[in-house]
C-alpha cells in the first residue's frame, strides 16, 4: 500500500533531531509538525518572519497580525522570535535552518528540483521556495512517486523549469524513501507492502537497488 499523507509526515518526522530549527512547506510538510517524536524539541521557522511557530489559535486568540507563510493564522510558541523578511531569509540563505521539508513536481538524479512552474498554466510565483532550496543543506522533498497517469516524477532530468539545481539529496514518496548521490536515486526504504518491482517500474531516473530494501513500519 502506498503511504497516506499522514504516514508520509510520520516518516519525515523520524528525521527530526533534538534542537533542530525546521522549515516546513505547505501541504504534507505542514503535517510533520503533528508527529514530532516524544522527548525532542524542534522549533519551526516560517519564512514570513517567525521562528517558533505554535499551533493554530483558538477562536479567541485569532490575531490578524500573526500568520504563517501559508497566510494562516497561527500562534507563537514559547521562546519564539519575530523578525523581518530580510532577517528570515538571512537565516535560510545563510544555512542556519537544520531541515527543510517541501513538495515538488519533479526531482532528478542530479538533485535538481522543479516545483513552481508548469508552462501553459498560470504561474503564481516561487514564493520562498528558491531561497529555501538554495540555502539549505538538509532538504527532504515529499511528493507522490508518479502522477495520476502513472508518469514518474523521479527523472533522469527534470522536464519543468527548475526551482534549484543540484540541491536535493533526500526524497520521500508515497512508495519509497530514496537518497540522491552520484547521479542516481538510491532506494533506502519501501512503503509497507510495496514491491521493489513497482518502485523500479515507476522510477524513470537511474535507480540503485540494494539487495535488501527494508519496509517502513508504522505504529
Amino acid at each position: 500500500m502506498a503511504l497516506s499523507r499522514e504516514q508520509m509526515a510520520q516518516r519525515v518526522a523520524r528525521e527530526l533531531q533534538d534542537g533542530f530549527y525546521v522549515n516546513l512547506g505547505i501541504g504534507i510538510p505542514t503535517l510533520v509538525a503533528n508527529y514530532v517524536p516524544a522527548g525532542i524539541e524542534v522549533m519551526l521557522q516560517s519564512e514570513n518572519g517567525l521562528l517558533g511557530m505554535g499551533p493554530f489559535p483558538t477562536e479567541d486568540e485569532i490575531d490578524a497580525d500573526m500568520i504563517n507563510a501559508g497566510k494562516q493564522t497561527v500562534t507563537a510558541a514559547t521562546g519564539a522570535s519575530i523578525f523581518s523578511s530580510a532577517e528570515s531569509f538571512a537565516m535560510i540563505r545563510g544555512g542556519h535552518v537544520d531541515l527543510t521539508v517541501l513538495g515538488a513536481f519533479e526531482v532528478d538524479v542530479n538533485g535538481n528540483i522543479a516545483s513552481w512552474m508548469i508552462p501553459g498554466k498560470l504561474i503564481k510565483g516561487m514564493g520562498g521556495a528558491m531561497d529555501l532550496v538554495a540555502g539549505a543543506d538538509n532538504i527532504i522533498v515529499t511528493m507522490t512517486h508518479a502522477s495520476k497517469h502513472g508518469e514518474s516524477k523521479l527523472l533522469t532530468e527534470c522536464s519543468l523549469p527548475l526551482t534549484g539545481r543540484g540541491c536535493i539529496k533526500k526524497v520521500l514518496t508515497d512508495l519509497a524513501y530514496l537518497e540522491i548521490e552520484d547521479g542516481a536515486f538510491h532506494l533506502k526504504e519501501r512503503a509497507p507492502g510495496v514491491s521493489v518491482e513497482e518502485i523500479i517500474e515507476k522510477t524513470e531516473g537511474k535507480l540503485i537497488v540494494p539487495d535488501n530494501v527494508p519496509e517502513m513500519t508504522f505504529a
Binding site: 483558538t58 477562536e59 490578524a64 497580525d65 500568520i67 493564522t73
Partner: peptide
C-alpha cells in the same frame, strides 16, 4: 480593517 486571508483555528 486588518483582513484575514486564511482563518485557521484549533478547538479551544
Amino acid at each position: 480593517e486588518k483582513r484575514i486571508e486564511q482563518r485557521t483555528v484549533r478547538q479551544g
